[in-house]
């Protein structure tokens, strides 16, 4: 446990040392939010102000960019000899990887705060009770943790940081075929089937419902089950992959 904390400190320092990655992970979603709200938003009918609709999608997009960096950090560690150094000090793989995930969570929460700030500046108004806020943040945290563990597992598969970077692109694309930016019932039916059932839709729907003070129905539980499932599978995969890589 104390090793995991030390590793978290290290990962946070490494994040702070790569401000370019931080800025990219922050600027991209904010830019996209501005593009969607001001360029496309007027043409998208969501039955209300578009900025009220789009914020959860942007939050999830932002988490995708941020968590994707975890894959690159993990690959970099596996490639450099530092991992041998840690292993010879009896640091478990789980501690190293949790350090990366915890740092990713901290990074993402900081980015989330910025996105909320910009969103508020351009007219987003949450109508949530404090319980609603907490629940929305809770769902977002679960999603970030799930995605970060998935990234860590991908980072253990990738043989170069560039290859790991490809994963970020894939993750960053997933919010588009979901209810994040446009209502799914405007999509062609074959795509709608995917969009309605992919994990991001319940995550986005529940955050949206909680922030706007609307009923979330089943999407809250669905989001949590998806996140828990992704986390469990990713942790197990990461553990197995780490063992294989260090044999």
């Amino acid at each position: 446990m104390s090793d995991a904390l030390t590793m978290t400190g290290r990962s946070l320092r490494l994040s702070a040392r790569t401000p370019d990655a931080l800025i990219t992970a922050l600027a991209m979603p904010v830019m996209l939010m501005l593009v969607f709200v001001y360029f496309f938003g007027g043409a998208i009918d969501t039955g209300g102000k578009y900025v009220q609709y789009v914020v959860p999608g942007v939050l999830v997009l932002c988490a995708g960019f941020g968590a994707g960096n975890t894959a690159m950090s993990v690959t970099q560690d596996m490639q450099s000899g530092i991992i041998d150094r840690f292993r010879a000090m009896d640091v478990r793989g789980a501690a190293i990887l949790s350090g990366h995930v915890a740092a990713s969570l901290a990074r993402n929460l900081a980015a989330t705060t910025v996105v909320f700030g910009v969103a508020t500046a351009i007219g987003f108004r949450a109508q949530a009770s404090s319980a609603g806020w907490l629940a929305a943040i809770g769902v977002l945290v679960c999603y970030i943790v799930a995605l970060s563990w998935l990234s860590a597992a991908v980072g253990l598969i990738a043989r170069s940081p560039e290859a790991a970077g490809g994963f970020t692109f894939f993750i960053a694309f997933l919010p588009y075929p979901s209810s994040g930016f446009v209502p799914v019932d405007t999509m062609p039916s074959w795509l709608r089937g995917f969009a309605e059932h992919q994990p991001l839709t319940p995550v986005i729907e529940s955050i949206r419902g909680l922030l706007l003070g609307r009923p979330v129905d089943g999407s809250g539980w669905q989001a949590l089950v998806w996140c828990a499932g992704i986390t469990v599978v990713s942790v197990a995969a990461a553990e197995a992959l780490y063992r294989r890589r260090t044999r």
Partner: peptide
């Protein structure tokens, strides 16, 4: 090669 974390 990497007894040290060169990013620190």
């Amino acid at each position: 090669y990497a007894a040290l974390d060169e990013q620190l």
